[in-house]
Amino acid sequence: MKRGDILLIGLIVVIAAAFLVPRWLGGDSSEKDHNEKRVANITVDGKLFRTVELTGEEQTIEIKTEFGTNLLKVHDYGIEMIDADCPDKVCLTFGFVERNGGTIVCLPHKLIVEIEGPPGEGDDVDAVVK
């Protein structure tokens, strides 16, 4: 291993840390806003398939399309891919996603799940009333 390698590794780790550390620090504060509703947008082949509210109760969503079948599970204000009949199973490795911007992708099925904050930033009151 040469000095250039060490420099390169250091540089990459610093870049990665610059992204990861604020995320970890910010993670604690996001715990308390569980009462604000988040939704997961499920998109298949570029078209919105379904929008699910992320609730504390368990709920299973089956997505059957011409590309294949995926099984999603909503629980503890987050969402998780629990089964898929795709060949690579990469989507199962995404694990449990709960934060804004969290994503689950299943490439072979052209499926993407994205978590978003409360629908419409301005109408907080409406969201609470619901």
Partner: peptide, 23 residues
Amino acid sequence: AASLYFNTTNIFYYLPMLLIMGV
């Protein structure tokens, strides 16, 4: 490729973890 295909930049959320694994 994925972000162009799905038209979203959210996927880059996983890039930092991938950088560490890549090392």
